[in-house]
Amino acid sequence: MSMPQATVSQSVVPSRAIQLVCPCCDLLMQVGSNHDHSKHELICPRCKHQVQAAGNMGFTKQACIAFSALLMLIYANTNPLLTFDFAGAYNTASILRGTLLLLEQGFYFVGGSVILTSFVAPFCFLTLIIINSLCLLTKRRPFWLATSIHFQQHLALWSMLEVYLLGFIISLVKLLDLAQVNVGVGIWCFAASFLLSSYLVHKISGELYWSTYAKR
């Protein structure tokens, strides 16, 4: 467990100290210039908010993991999550089919919310990681890069893959009571996509993106 490195700011900021502000409580802090944020997380001493996460995953690794998660997500959305044999009729269910049926029934708001949180948000989040990482790796700085990094950070909040997985387990238990259910390969890809994107959310350092962006 890494220890917090921040100290509360005094009125005079010594040289070779970096000023930081807690985004949660606006506390002004200072850390030594030798602070290595790749090894130590930074916790606000007042509100205990994690100001900087530990970890400094390189852009190449981020892009590779995001690409794998994206492929898994696309496969999971287009292939059956489960197959279900009920009263002689053979049924399959996929994520996209379920949301499209809700839209067909006229429930645009419900279907739109489900598709936003289970597909669009994680898809855009992973795509933006790939695009932004490649831009920073190849030292390109298109005019939309700052906005793109900003959206990447916010889209993670709307990605609800873990909630969908729990929803799937509940549906599975309900259906098992009725008939024979076979779990499709789609759900395994969905679970893999969830694990990879969770790993990215916890390991990506926003500071690394912005400091690399500002360097060039």
Partner: peptide
């Protein structure tokens, strides 16, 4: 959101039944 995800899965499961 769990209930809405369960709903979307159930709608898809019984679509051709």
């Amino acid at each position: 959101m769990i209930d809405l995800f369960v709903l979307s899965i159930m709608v898809a499961v019984f679509q051709y039944n």
